[in-house]
């Protein structure tokens, strides 16, 4: 349980948000040309990192907008929040 700084609404309780999993997994441009292995990679395989991870969140009980977040999954500390389509901040 922690606070999330929504890029549109400001700091809110985590229970207002829903987690959308790993970020920056690009939807295949030509789905029909994918092999079964590539589909499995896109649909199911995840890095599931213990440490700093890039992920998507949705402010489900707020503005309902999606955004990206960099969070350390070993201690739930949030490093950065940035909007969809933006490049992740480098620090």
């Amino acid at each position: 349980m922690f606070l999330i700084n929504c890029p549109y609404c400001g700091e809110r309780d985590q229970s207002e948000f829903s987690a959308g999993g790993e970020a920056h997994i690009v939807r295949p441009k030509q789905p029909t040309e994918l092999s079964d292995d590539q589909w499995a990679e896109f649909l199911f395989m995840r890095k599931n990192i213990k440490g700093v991870q890039f992920e998507r969140w949705n402010h489900a009980h707020g503005c309902r907008k999606w955004f990206n977040m960099i969070r350390d999954t070993s201690n739930d500390k949030i490093h950065a929040v940035y909007k969809m389509g933006e490049k992740p901040p480098t620090k």
């Binding site: 999993g21 499995a40 990679e41 199911f44 395989m45 995840r46 890095k47 599931n48 990192i49 213990k50 999954t73």
Partner: peptide
Amino acid sequence: GHSSVIASMVDLKLPLES
């Protein structure tokens, strides 16, 4: 819960979320 951490040691990705 740490299966993916071990798997990453051999660059293997698993369909898991911890």
